[in-house]
Design a binder for these strands. Structure first.
Lengths: 259, 259
DNA sequence: CAGTGGTCTAGACCACATG
DNA sequence: ATGTGGTCTAGACCACTGG
């Protein structure tokens, strides 16, 4: 459970993984170096092979190390991986990158869902939704426009929140909303008039659009959003390996070219 | 080893994972359904708990299922995941999506690497590289412009290959090049004159740019490429979960706005 | 050849969910 | 209270890499 706040790592595999991650991040193991063998790690942590392998599997999934039959496990070129929390929250991500996040709320509204939004949230046409429209800043400079939509049950918490105060995601977590997973679709789109004005760029400027849907463990849809980044402020990177198929996929879109 | 072509799954965990994947894909287990318990699976496959859990971990990593203490394992809404091969090869991806891939090679060249390319391939300034520039088609319609760069050792195989014939990736695999992992960076960029002409769109049209670097298991760089998609032809989707931090990350870019 | 990581077994205890 | 998945142990054999 890598939930919102810190959590003491009781589990052995967590301890081991944490030790290795830290050692790699701090340079005790340089890219190209060999990690201690599994046998050595079991000794060092007075553990058995299971937890050690579980820890290594985690790091492998994060793209930090590479291993294979007969070979020693080696450290890869450090690839900044991000936790679920970091990837879903702009504020969290900024803090990790040592950037000061900011926001200028344009409006917050409770309104009936129009067709496509209702479909996206899997609710009935016209059911109430809570929508938020914010300009997001990085070190006080415009970087992204954010359009968030929540079904009423979740949106209630948003209405009661000062959206200029910071992370809605954190607020929802604190209120006990069970955000379990998210699906993102990334493409490019030209800035419309609204985008252009807020981001202070000409209409048509290429923006990196990230549409996100967040789910509970039970599969209920919590959020449907549309973020548009200035491409010179942010980009996505991802890593895939033979063994660990990234859960990313390139998807053909059925849309036609804009008129 | 989920290498290029099919491979009989000798390993138990592969068999189990394959069985479950197939059953899910074919609808024997619908989204929301509970999977057989681990105990049942160990029985069904006359196996022990290890392989069963390894298989489930794989599906979890692919975003197909969700599990947790005390809860039964449930099937998530179908999330098309792609294998490493599919994600790295345009041809492979198209075939999966039942699209006919095509290509019109603009040029293939062996030339000295200019500064930034040399840095990206981690070779010396001016070292020879093999570059390929192709327009890629989906069902005979322009969809993407592809700029590939290989260090000479790998590029030799490309020079000897008819780049209008299809998948360079498959050719490299067949020649024994050990493509182990890849890192992608995704952002948006306006079409330049060259892009615009080939894709048959106005200059400045927002394109989805995917820059890729591919590595061997030993960490040598095999490829550095730049693909630019028409955003109405393709987009990326990815899924992240609490437990399985997607190896994706949003990265702040240091570039400044274009003049 | 010895050592490594990949796979597997057959037990065990725990935290949690559901009835 | 029962059953689930999460964790852990202490063995074992295999496939492969490297000296």
């Amino acid at each position: 459970m890598t939930t919102g706040s810190r959590q003491r790592s009781r589990q052995q595999h967590d301890e081991i993984a944490h030790y290795l991650r830290t050692a790699i991040r701090e340079g005790s193991f340089q890219p190209g170096d060999e990690l201690p063998s599994e046998a050595e790690l079991t000794q060092k942590f007075s553990s058995s092979r299971g937890p050690v392998r579980q820890a290594l599997a985690a790091l492998r999934g994060e793209g930090l190390i590479s291993s294979g039959r007969g070979r020693r496990t080696v450290v890869l070129d450090n690839v900044l991986t991000q936790s679920f929390d970091d990837v879903i929250s702009f504020s969290q991500w900024c803090r990790n990158a040592e950037i000061v996040p900011g926001q200028r709320t344009q409006w917050v509204a409770r309104q009936p869902a129009e067709r496509s939004l209702a479909a996206s949230l899997r609710i009935a046409d016209g059911d109430p939704v809570v929508s938020v429209f914010r300009l997001r800043l990085m070190d006080d400079v415009p970087a992204m426009v954010e359009r968030l939509n929540y079904p009423l049950e979740v949106g209630r918490h948003v209405l009661a929140f000062d959206t200029d105060a910071g992370s809605i995601y954190q607020e929802l977590l604190d209120r006990g909303v069970d955000i379990d997973r998210a699906s993102r679709t990334i493409d490019a789109i030209g800035a419309n008039e609204e985008d252009a004005k807020l981001l202070e760029v000409p209409v048509g400027t290429p923006l990196l659009r990230v549409r996100r849907r967040a789910f509970t463990g039970a599969g209920e849809i919590i959020e449907s959003s549309d973020d548009r980044y200035l491409p010179w402020k942010a980009s996505f990177t991802m890593n895939s390996t033979r063994g660990n198929p990234s859960s990313m996929s390139l998807v053909s879109t059925e849309h036609t070219a804009p008129a």
